[in-house]
Simulated scan of single mutants.
Amino acid sequence: MSALIERESTPVRVAPRITALREALSLDKAQFADSIEYDRSTLTKVEAGKAGLDLAVGERIAALYGVGLDYIYRGDLSDLPSDLRPRVLSELASAKSVFTSK
């Protein structure tokens, strides 16, 4: 079980979920970073999968936007607010098609 969680919470797995959430919220990187009181350049690294997302930051995202930590760190889509879920799914699908077409 712990191996599953570790794989799902790696920076490269968390990155597209954070990006999809931000884009579903119609926020640019600066707006999102400022809203969660996070360094903009660090957010860029997180979204690129080059840095991990600190749990305290994940908790701020969860509290501010109503998403669960299981979405952020494990990819559990049921841990998203129902009104946000379709937009996040759409963003995740778009990101996947971009990466697979390269």
Rank of each mutant, 00 (worst) to 15 (best):
S2L: 14
S2P: 08
I5C: 01
I5Y: 12
E8D: 09
T10I: 08
T10G: 15
P11K: 03
V12L: 11
R13C: 03
V14R: 03
V14F: 01
P16Q: 07
I18Y: 00
T19K: 13
T19Y: 08
T19F: 00
A20G: 11
L21Q: 04
L21H: 00
R22W: 02
R22E: 07
E23N: 13
L25V: 09
D28T: 10
D28H: 11
K29V: 09
A30I: 15
A30D: 13
Q31A: 14
Q31G: 11
D34L: 06
I36T: 11
R40L: 13
R40G: 07
S41P: 00
T42G: 04
T42C: 05
L43A: 12
T44K: 11
V46G: 06
E47R: 02
E47P: 04
A48P: 05
A48L: 15
G49V: 05
K50G: 01
K50Q: 10
G52F: 03
L53E: 09
L53R: 04
D54G: 11
D54M: 07
L55P: 03
L55I: 15
V57I: 13
G58W: 04
G58P: 01
E59W: 03
R60K: 15
R60E: 12
A63P: 00
A63T: 10
Y65T: 07
Y65W: 03
Y65L: 01
G66Q: 08
G66V: 05
V67H: 04
V67R: 03
G68M: 02
I72D: 07
Y73T: 10
G75Q: 02
D76V: 10
S78I: 01
L80P: 04
P81R: 08
P81D: 00
D83E: 11
L84I: 11
R85C: 00
P86C: 15
R87E: 12
R87F: 10
L89D: 13
L89F: 05
S90L: 11
S90H: 09
E91L: 03
L92D: 06
L92H: 05
A93Y: 05
S94H: 13
S94L: 13
A95R: 02
A95E: 13
K96L: 12
S97Y: 08
V98G: 02
F99G: 02
T100W: 04
S101T: 13
